[in-house]
Design a protein around this nucleic acid. Structure first.
Lengths: 135, 135
DNA sequence: TCGTAGTTTAGACATAGTCTAAGTTTGTCG
DNA sequence: CGACAAACTTAGACTATGTCTAAACTACGA
């Protein structure tokens, strides 16, 4: 955990304001996977002068500057998939379109040997762009 | 595509109402990955007597009865992860808690050979229960 | 026909996230 | 220092997604 968060932010091209430092101190080193509102709650306990909009702005900024990763499958929505057999998913980065990838196209090993977890199901989620002609 | 949707629903223990049939006809055989409101829009075009609540109820019922799968990483929210190196994720089915799984714990092959896709990044998403003592 | 369980409905409510317009802070340059 | 501009923060309005409720409707067996 760095002593100097301001320096860390500056290195990424982010102006280190008090609010951003408070958010950074919590979110950059947590082991939890907090939602934006959870971040807001945590940081407000330390730094009460902090609006919700700033937390959202700051988190999005951190994601853009590669300090954080956003974990989400589709673009903020729950989607439904009628294909009940196991399969993988590919998400087109430009369009957000989700495509099914057949189970056998990819092989994954050592899942069942994972220590500490009973894995009931799994899938590979890929992101990138489609190389199709017709689209 | 089955001729008799009513029979299909009854086999799963679902009373086949007109609304449920209309939803089933669209959602069980689409290649899209529609959100709930997209389903509503599509089905309402065919069957205008259909409320939003019924669509949500029906979709959730179909998921419970294993006709559909819900594609979502965390429980409907975007969460943030400060770990920027590639890694996988395990989601505890009971608590919804997300844990990081080291990249080397699992091996995935043939991703880069996928026809038609430029995969820029990928991860394995697992679901199940944690077998830890302390929790 | 009646009663009941199951289903559907509109709309209120809740939560997640974005946007805006105004106010505050910060950095720069004379 | 002083003032200006750019960057940042704010409250609250707004949109979208999803849940809940109470009332109305429907199907169906006794």
């Amino acid at each position: 955990m760095p002593a100097d968060f301001a320096k860390l932010l500056r290195e990424k091209g982010i102006q280190p304001s008090a609010q951003r430092l408070a958010v950074a101190e919590y979110v950059l080193f947590t082991k939890e996977h907090p939602s934006a509102d959870q971040v807001w709650a945590k940081v407000r306990a330390v730094c009460p002068v902090l609006s919700r909009a700033t937390v959202y702005n700051t988190l999005n900024l951190f994601v853009k500057k590669k300090l954080l990763r956003e974990l989400v499958l589709s673009e903020g929505k729950v989607v439904f998939d009628p294909k009940m057999e196991a399969h993988h998913h590919f998400i087109d980065e430009h369009t957000g379109r989700i495509e099914d990838v057949p189970w056998n196209a990819i092989s994954v090993s050592r899942v069942s040997g994972l220590k500490g977890y009973d894995v009931r199901e799994y899938m590979v989620v890929m992101r990138g762009r489609t190389r199709r002609k017709s689209c």
